[in-house]
Design a binder for these strands. Structure first.
Lengths: 337, 337
DNA sequence: AATATTTGCGAAAACGTTGTAGTTAATTTT
DNA sequence: AAAATTAACTACAACGTTTTCGCAAATATT
């Protein structure tokens, strides 16, 4: 059964609605005997308060939105899982939205969140997002945002990232130390914060070891799988091919594996590959893939924790805070000397 | 800006609240001139109706819950992605809940959904779920459920599955045809519908080819990774080892890969492996993994479509309907002769 | 010209809560 | 014994919508 509300409970118990409400919230205004009686029958009748009535009164929904560029990606899924666990602990609910890496869709989703459906937002930017007015507007309308991974520097709030510069540097250095002299960098977009930092790390490492950076070696891959495949194939077809490859996202490393399979290019003998990835199967690939693995789960947990903490304090503006977690470079066979 | 409501709009326009409300919903009661004036200023002032006020009036939230046993699994993620796309099209919102394959948590989550927070539920059962009263109660309280993959036969509603029996049969037959005589089956739980059907297919194939079924060859693996590892290791350590292995879920095949790696067992020479999986990296594993791949994305889409269609018609009871999609057996090197 | 209908709008109730401001009756203080 | 306090409860407004009903003025029908 169900759909029992305060009114029905009150009728049943022959007390007023307010009394029932207060008793259930443990108010000291209600005598302990009545309180017990009310609580008991409430349980008996399976009473559960209508969340929307409460939301309407309090302008709080106990719900947050998690906005991610894609879902079919272990990094984001692990982050979501982390956030979900914290949400269940704290009694919050999570609405999931996927921008499919499309700035327009991102804008539209955030617009629809301005009306109080959620109390706050955890998000990672779409790679095509250029303007930040939709983010500012959301915050202006009283809904705080916490960013993770693909953050927006321009906005003052909490941001959870990993040490992308250092990781980019380490990844490149690792390739160099294992004998690479000509290293390509596969990225998604110059807009996104992570990609940029990783590239800077890459360039810095090249510089440190006296390798010159070549713009031709920085390949921007967009969303379409087939176009990426062709771009990478072209990269591996010239007379001067790279002997190392650093992919900023998992998907691009996998595409490279396919290209190498098809072109009979041997990994790691001819090409060494390293990649940002949370793939569980990295150790089982042929060859096993050297990865920089981000603490995605932890990032999701922290993002959620910070958001909830602020929401519970009724803070609608979250102070600037950069939380930087460490990624781990896991050496495997794809970069073996 | 924001937080503008009907009252403020009405004040600004010097008309009544009802007039504004009606105009915005395109009522024929309002003159076209006034209507235009209202719609224009509403847009100007960035009005967006408070969703919870509407929900309270209509007892409809335009929100559904998606309850899955785990998130870090490509099958469920693809299904969620499918559902999310349909939801965005239809103007619905999706709350995500993860049971972590725990019947108690599942129960608790569903209990919390009885109060009208969602209009309907899409779910896949936890493997430990034995009793179905919490499902029945939810439906009794007017919230319809659509099941996908791990369904509950006992409850009358729409269910989206794949042809698990046939797939189980085909998988086993494939192993037999490639020379296996002693095939183990790794499963999660006898409770879950999919597992059961797959096992029946497995047994049927053994029977057809005159191989006798051995209870020792049916290994029940629970959630814990380490225990699974030990169970599989034990399986591969006896004097009489299986020469074929059929895993009902992805995770178990991967664990088997690890076991074989560690024990220097050669796949497919010594052991052939086939597995239900939506892993994108199946072709890149060492060796590439033969899979039965479910149309997860499509399953999510269909589950959502059916649910929304019923909700839009204000149907709170969904008629029994079994939608069975076809899985695909993709032959790769892990089962090569 | 008297009556009936239509058009355009507003008042107010309702959805299920919560919290403020009473209102009794019992108890304590003076 | 009168006044003040406290304890235990209730009435009611409010949150932001939607919708039913009502009402006047304008128009159409006899």
């Amino acid at each position: 059964m169900a759909k029992v509300n305060l009114k029905q409970l009150a009728q049943q118990l022959d007390v007023s609605i307010s009394t029932v409400s207060k008793a259930l919230r443990g108010s000291y205004e209600i005598g302990s005997e009545t309180k017990k009686r009310i609580i008991d029958t409430a349980r008996e009748m399976g009473y559960s308060p209508n969340p929307y009535a409460g939301s309407l009164r309090h302008h709080k929904s106990k719900t947050i939105a998690l906005v991610a560029p894609e879902l079919t990606n272990n990094f984001f899924i692990q982050a979501i899982t982390g956030a979900e666990i914290v949400a269940q602990e704290k009694g919050y609910h999570i609405l999931i939205y996927c921008t499919h890496d499309d700035a327009e869709k991102e804008k539209s989703i955030l617009m629809h969140l301005q009306n109080g459906r959620v109390d706050g937002v955890i998000m990672s930017l779409a790679s095509t997002t250029q303007s930040y007015t939709h983010l500012e507007e959301l915050i202006q309308s009283g809904i705080p945002i916490v960013f993770f991974d693909r953050i927006c520097h321009e906005i003052e709030t909490a941001k959870i990232t990993t040490d992308d510069f250092t990781s980019g540097f380490n990844a490149t250095e690792h390739l160099i130390q294992n004998g690479c002299h000509d290293i390509a960098y596969l990225c998604v977009s110059e807009n996104i914060s992570t990609d940029n930092k990783r590239k800077q790390g890459y360039l810095e490492a090249l510089n440190k070891y006296g390798l010159k950076a070549d713009k031709q070696r920085i390949i921007k891959c967009n969303g379409d799988e087939k176009i990426n495949y062709r771009k990478i194939k072209k990269l591996m077809s010239g007379t001067k091919k790279p002997d190392g490859l650093f992919a900023s996202i998992e998907k691009l490393a996998l595409t490279t594996y396919y290209v190498c399979n098809d072109m009979k290019i041997k990994i790691p003998q001819t090409l060494k590959i390293i990649c940002f990835s949370n793939l569980r199967t990295a150790p089982l690939l042929n060859p096993s893939l050297t990865t920089i693995t981000q603490p995605a789960f932890e990032m999701g947990k922290q993002a959620a924790s910070i958001l909830f903490k602020n929401l519970d304090k009724k803070r609608t503006l979250i102070s600037n805070e950069n939380i930087v977690l460490k990624s781990e470079l896991i050496k495997r066979n794809s970069t073996k000397k």
